[in-house]
Design a protein around this nucleic acid. Structure first.
Lengths: 376, 376
DNA sequence: TCCGATTTGTTCGTATGTATG
DNA sequence: GCATACATACGAACAAATCGG
């Protein structure tokens, strides 16, 4: 059970961290806070007193309570050398993130840094909590994989606050456009393009595409999918595209595909471009039940070149993802930014050019010429 | 004009400075101070609150207010605000550890703790470095998966130091016998037993076993493998057993198996007990090249019930591993230990009984009656 | 320069909840 | 179970500083 003064305290801290209150700005008066939270003056003063003691606020009698400037103080704290870096991902255990985390951890621990991990579960609210935690502690740098990157982010202010406190951060896999942060991403549009191009060059003309549309990767890959069709003059039936959101990943895409392939109005799909390898595994289960052959009846191109490509019976054609290399590069970049910051004392997050990984296709057994025999 | 609470404050400070109150000694209770200075309780609390914030005193509900030991102030002041837990695993990204880490992270972050991760790469030297780092920082608890747990550990002293500093730690998957720590492990001997028993009950008598012998899990599973043979009166040819160390995992076990199955002195092996599912994947690749059918020609039992069991064409019979449940349980246990420590001020690491997970076999398509048809 | 409204500072009283020994 | 000690929360009153008119 949370205490009232703690609620007030956290609310004020939030307002400080998301930039509602800027340094030296006056915060709401005690009576305003009393009304706002429907608590007694005593409770408000208790909350404010705590924050004053911790150096978040300062009071001036007769004038008001003000947001403190915690930046100057930062230096003194940093004198105590504690090298700490935060990694925020959407999911810790799923899929390719462990590789990314491992890559980053190996570099960072070698450089004497300690790595703290956080996962948002692709939820903006959780992301906010994590950013608040990071802002209230002495982190030297942050590596973040954006949550629901296709949508505008309600936590932009927290990232701006990182900049204000000159804590370097970089984004991997995707980035929030508004921030123009240093980032390490794939050229996902090109990735989607070469996935599709590969099938087109094998003679496929009726190609289904399944894309996750709540992150930037998915929307970009879909863009590449469309572009390839246009480039090669292949007419694209809008019904060939299936989109889904993270929460639906276990159900909707496979259900929709089942409809597309096996319902009465089924069309003669011969190729499939998948958002990623993980999804292909679900698709393969469906096809196995329906006695459909891969690649005989359906050629499939995955994305990420994950371990799935090797363990399934049909080795999967897939787009290579840098994975642990990306993690390592991210780690090196953040170390570089920290070094620059400590020498220049200026915000350099945006001085570096984003690193864009060019995708390349790893052709394996899951794709063949349309109607054709396995190439192997 | 001096305020009342300031008088009380200065009086207490004086008593601390002139040695009337020694570190960790209980000071007068609030009601005593009320009488002594003839002020209200609120005023006393205001004075004490100030001194607590400045680190001169600390309060314990139900017990009293105590003089702080300002020698160790640096440590305590950080420890109070920073709820930090370390997780040490052998490998961060491989296999089932991501699930364990995720399970632990979800519980710990919910409890407001921050999770720092370290990986030893199964190397004692790296483990030592990590333990040194942890000992020099304010961690509240440590969850550790032992490195090379089958061997005696050269870093025992570091763990004893954790105990001396009363930092709770627990071990998962295995434990160093000398320490008798709180641990969460599987009954690996029983696991190896039921793997083998399953094949025996299907009529197999020539069963190969592959075990990793540098961790406790592997040696225990091998023990179960032997026990099952004895129990059922099946003679066991020592040549049916292959052992390997972590560094050899990509080469030796498969090479040895190839020799066992396909060389001139090959024997008629019909069943295979594998240290884990990951290894089975390598085995399956070998068998595919050799055009050997699973389960038709060889029945295979894996261990860990990992994602591999579901993605391969032949669904794998395997022993269930608690994975993220184990991570969650580990997190809850360490939180419990921290709570006890903060209340009792004694080392309680060893007061809890180790949690042992009983293994259970998940039967899928990779095992059939000897010489028989697939059961499906 | 003073006034009055606002805002924080100090102090009292009271009540109930929760942890400790 | 009980007394003790700290924790949370409400209410009220007056003091002292600030600021705009």
């Amino acid at each position: 059970m949370e205490t009232k003064y703690n609620m007030v305290k956290r609310a004020i801290q939030s307002d400080i961290m998301d930039g509602t209150y800027l340094p030296h700005q006056k915060i709401s008066s005690e009576s305003e806070l009393m009304a706002q939270f429907k608590v007694s003056r005593h409770t408000v003063r208790l909350a404010i007193g705590d924050l004053v003691a911790k150096g978040w606020l300062y009071r001036e009698q007769g004038s008001g309570t003000f947001c403190a400037d915690r930046e100057e103080e930062q230096d003194t704290i940093q004198a105590v050398e504690r090298k700490n870096i935060a990694i925020i991902t959407t999911y810790i255990s799923d899929y390719i993130f462990p590789s990314i985390i491992r890559g980053a951890e190996s570099i960072l621990s070698q450089a004497g840094y300690q790595v703290s991990i956080f996962s948002t579960n692709n939820d903006h609210e959780k992301e906010r909590e994590i950013l608040e935690k990071i802002l209230s502690q002495p982190f030297d740098g942050v590596i973040v994989e954006p949550t629901k990157s296709a949508f505008s982010n309600p936590n932009i202010n927290y990232y701006l606050n990182l900049e204000r406190l000159s804590i370097p951060y970089i984004m991997i896999n995707a980035y929030y456009d508004e921030l123009e942060p240093m980032s390490l991403v794939m050229n996902d549009e090109k990735g989607g393009f070469i996935q599709t191009e590969h099938l087109i060059q094998l003679g496929h003309t009726e190609i289904a595409g399944i894309f996750k549309t709540d992150d930037l990767q998915g929307t970009q890959r879909m863009k590449g999918f469309l572009k390839a069709h246009r480039r090669y003059g292949i007419p694209l039936n809008p019904k060939n595209i299936i989109t889904y959101h993270t929460e639906e990943k276990e159900t909707k895409p496979v259900q929709e595909l089942e409809k597309m392939l096996f319902s009465e109005e089924a069309r003669d799909i011969t190729g499939l471009v998948s958002y990623n390898d993980e999804l292909v595994m679900n698709v393969l289960n469906l096809l196995r039940n329906k006695r459909m052959q891969v690649p005989g009846d359906l050629s499939i191109v995955g994305y990420d070149d994950s371990f799935f490509t090797e363990v399934s019976e049909v080795k999967l054609t897939s787009v290579a993802h840098p994975k642990s290399d990306m993690g390592k590069a991210a780690a090196k970049t953040i170390l570089d930014l920290i070094k620059r910051k400590n020498s220049n004392k200026v915000n350099v997050s945006k001085q570096l050019e984003p690193i864009v990984y060019d995708p390349s296709l790893i052709v394996r057994g899951s794709t063949v010429k349309v109607g054709g025999v396995e190439v192997s």
